[in-house]
């Protein structure tokens, strides 16, 4: 069998970075699927991109600005209308430490 592109531990680490909890079964399944997909992605290795600059934008737009003029904000009711938890006009987040 070929050396896997991504190990189970790496999948765990990446899921941690992405703040997505995975179950044990998912870790197994994802590791398998991700390896298959990454194996396919590595097809790009064979493309010769020597001296080729990356395309960040397909447009050649530059210098798009807005003026420093105040626009109306949302009302607080609108701003918080979708928040699952709020308190005294604040959003309520879990504890930090």
């Amino acid at each position: 069998m070929k050396k896997p592109r991504i190990s189970r531990r790496e999948v765990e680490h990446i899921a941690w970075l992405a703040h997505i909890e995975l179950t044990e079964e998912e870790k197994t399944l994802f590791t398998e699927q991700l390896n298959e997909i990454l194996e396919y992605f590595r097809k790009i290795d064979s493309a010769d991109t020597e001296g080729v600059s990356p395309t960040y934008h397909v447009l050649d737009l530059v210098n798009v600005y807005r003026e420093d003029e105040v626009q109306e904000s949302l009302t607080r009711e609108e701003a918080l209308s979708n928040a699952p938890k709020k308190e005294r006009g604040f959003l309520k987040a879990p504890r930090i430490v």
Binding site: R66, E69, V70, Q71, E72, S73, L74, T75, R76, A79, L80, R88, G89, F90, L91
Partner: peptide
């Protein structure tokens, strides 16, 4: 375009 004058304002009133 939200106002940057946020000091002393009620929370979440200068957001878009």
């Amino acid at each position: 375009g939200c106002s940057s004058d946020y000091r002393g304002k009620e929370p979440n009133t200068l957001v878009c």
